[in-house]
Nucleic acid binder design. Structure first.
Length: 278
DNA sequence: CTTGTGTCCTGTAGGC
DNA sequence: TGCCTACAGGACACAA
């Protein structure tokens, strides 16, 4: 569910609630949610640590602890972080971190696909290889059309697939890839290596823009409301989606008669306007 | 190395 | 109402 803008929003809102707080102890309520180390070691390693600040890398949230520890969280499709009252119960809660102020940080994950890790900052284990091999952040300056062109050159896979590859551009998921392709006027099934220079330019810019817009509007809360802000509110980028989830509806571009179509690309539901995208 | 496909796990929506 | 299937914001392990 959460892509870069959602994780960044969570980071920004959680930061003031957690920074400087001590985690009194941790309860693992579902063992396979802990990616590293073993659940018992995770609980013991977290207990007593103080949160220094919150960081993010792609879709990973990094809670920096004192003594050089990083509590790394990946929300995958349905994970959710929330600060709640100490006695408040949370549905689908998998890990609970008791804080020193009668509140608790709750990690809920109905599908149990998300993971938490406790690692030393200078020594990430192989379980987090995906994070180590991640490409640049599309919202930063080291991501540009020259870089993207290099990575797409010679590739025959559909461009949509490569946008989802975190080694190329981290933080991009199913929603924002569709939206970026729409803004760039490129069909998702186009072979990545066949894009022209102007198209790559537009795509790089569109990725940067759409992720920044997503952050600006606090992310995308779809109908099921699975992504919520840590205080419970909703994001608002869903109101600005051009194609994602709009199959059969009219294209948003002024004067365009196109109807949004949906197809399956690399097993993922994919949306585009057949008029605006070539 | 690249690519496509299946799998992980659970809940929910929609068809019959 | 109840059963069954398909699908879901992600990432990997594979096979070809």
């Amino acid at each position: 569910m959460p892509e870069l803008p959602e994780v960044e929003t969570i980071r920004l809102l959680l930061q003031p609630l957690l920074a400087g707080r001590r985690i009194v102890r941790a309860f693992v309520r579902r063992r396979d949610i802990v990616g590293f180390p073993a659940p018992r070691g995770f609980e013991l390693g977290v207990a007593g640590r103080t949160v220094e600040e919150l960081g993010r890398r792609g879709k990973y949230l990094v809670v920096r602890l004192d003594h050089g520890g990083d509590l790394v969280v990946h929300l995958r499709l349905s994970g959710h972080l929330e600060v709640v009252g100490r006695n408040e119960e949370v549905r689908y809660e998998r890990v609970r971190f008791e804080l020193d102020n009668d509140k608790a940080l709750s990690f809920a994950e109905p599908r149990v696909l998300g993971r938490v890790y406790l690692v030393q900052r200078d020594k990430y284990p192989p379980e987090l290889a995906g994070m180590m091999n991640m490409g640049p952040e599309p919202i930063h300056a080291d991501f540009d059309a020259v870089y993207l062109g290099e990575r797409l050159r010679g590739r025959t896979a559909p461009v949509k697939n490569l946008l989802l590859d975190q080694r190329i551009a981290c933080g991009v998921g199913n929603i924002y890839s569709d939206e970026a392709l729409f803004r760039a006027g490129i069909r998702p099934l186009r072979r990545a290596g066949r894009l022209g220079r102007a198209e790559v330019d537009r795509l790089a810019q569109a990725l940067t823009d759409v992720l920044r817009d997503g952050i600006k509007w606090c992310g995308t809360t779809l109908g099921d409301g699975r992504y919520r802000l840590p205080e419970g509110g909703a994001g608002s980028f869903q109101k600005r989606l051009a194609v994602f989830g709009r199959e059969g509806e009219r294209c948003r571009r002024r004067g365009c008669e196109g109807v949004v179509r949906r197809l399956r690309v690399g097993g993922r539901s994919t949306h585009f306007c057949p008029v605006c995208q070539k």
